[in-house]
């Protein structure tokens, strides 16, 4: 039993990945891993379903820890006015954590509804031209504690980062910028997520910055009507997370900085978008003995829906 408890301490101290971040937020065609500033038409909804596979592992210690997260976030964006859109992200996730213990290799896991994120985005600046559009849109919202944060097994309550939800109300905000032509598009965002404490545990605050470049590779020449586009996508994501706090004390083995470089493809039609991207860690500096991220894979589908009101 003491071996199991040791394993539990390792888990608590080691897992870096928290809840599902602000991925899966749709709007128009645009970045795959973050938010665009392009408009959602009034009385229109964009629904996005995604599949995400994330792995984080550690071969620096005999514990040989391995975390696998599979997530199916469903995101909906509704155009309230031509400039204001409201977004909701409902994540379903399955988390599995394996670790070597004195009693053998152990697996811990949870699955279910995660924390729902609700936020608004307002297009503050829109410069439309025949050959381009430029948008700046601040966004802000809350992460609700809808996911179960009290899952337990025979050893008691599972570590907080392994729970489906965080249990806390968090605030997030940022700024999205988009420049789009018919041949290429560039998006960028910067943002911040401020966490709160729940049940004596507080996840580290996060700051993030992302850039996306999409280049139309097909068709080479635009034909009549509205042809479908195939974009080659290159993105990069920088995220820095502070240390978690347990009963007010910083966990030295949590948080850190990660920088990913991503390559993907996006097929855009009038009604739907099919997209896929691979996120490759270019830099991963977890604090202490935190886990290092492996390659992440995301595949998704977006639908345009006209609302009756």
């Amino acid at each position: 039993m003491s071996g199991m408890r040791t394993a539990r301490h390792i888990v608590v101290a080691a897992i870096v990945l928290g809840g599902i971040a602000l991925t899966g937020a749709p709007a128009s065609a645009g970045p795959i891993t973050f938010l665009t500033a392009l408009p959602v038409a009034q009385s229109q909804a964009v629904v996005r379903g995604q599949y995400l596979l994330m792995r984080a592992s550690d071969n620096r210690t005999p514990a040989d820890r391995e975390l696998t997260v599979q997530a199916w976030p469903v995101a909906v964006a509704v155009g309230i006015t031509p400039r204001l859109a409201v977004f909701g992200v409902v994540p379903f996730a399955a988390k599995s954590f394996e670790v070597n213990t004195p009693a053998g290799r152990r697996t811990f896991g949870t699955s279910g509804l995660g924390d729902i994120v609700v936020f608004g985005r307002f297009t503050a600046i829109a410069v439309d031209d025949v050959e381009s559009t430029f948008r700046i849109a601040p966004f802000g919202g809350v992460k609700l504690p809808t996911g179960d944060a009290d899952e337990s097994d025979d050893l008691g309550r599972l570590p907080r980062p392994l729970q489906a939800g965080t249990g806390s109300w968090d605030a997030l905000g940022g700024l999205a910028i988009t420049f789009q032509t018919k041949q290429w598009q560039m998006d960028a965002d910067v943002g911040f997520r401020r966490t709160t404490e729940a049940d004596e545990f507080r996840f580290g605050d996060e700051a993030f910055a992302d850039v996306s470049f999409q280049y139309r590779v097909w068709p080479r020449q635009l034909g009549a009507g509205v042809p479908a586009f195939l974009y080659a996508v290159a993105e990069t994501n920088l995220i820095s997370q502070g240390r978690h706090e347990i009963r007010g004390l910083a966990d030295s083995d949590s948080g850190g900085t990660r920088w990913d470089v991503d390559v993907g493809l996006q097929y855009v039609t009038t009604n739907y978008i099919i997209e896929g991207i691979v996120q490759i860690p270019a830099l991963d500096r977890p604090n202490g003995t935190g886990l290092r991220s492996d390659v992440r894979v995301t595949a998704g589908l977006r639908w345009n829906i006209s609302l009756p009101f």
């Binding site: 065609a29 229109q44 559009t133 042809p227 009604n271």
Partner: peptide, 13 residues
């Protein structure tokens, strides 16, 4: 002005 991709054309139509 501003219409640059197929997905954006949906709302206009």
């Amino acid at each position: 002005k501003g219409m640059q991709c197929p997905f954006c054309a949906y709302g206009i139509k």
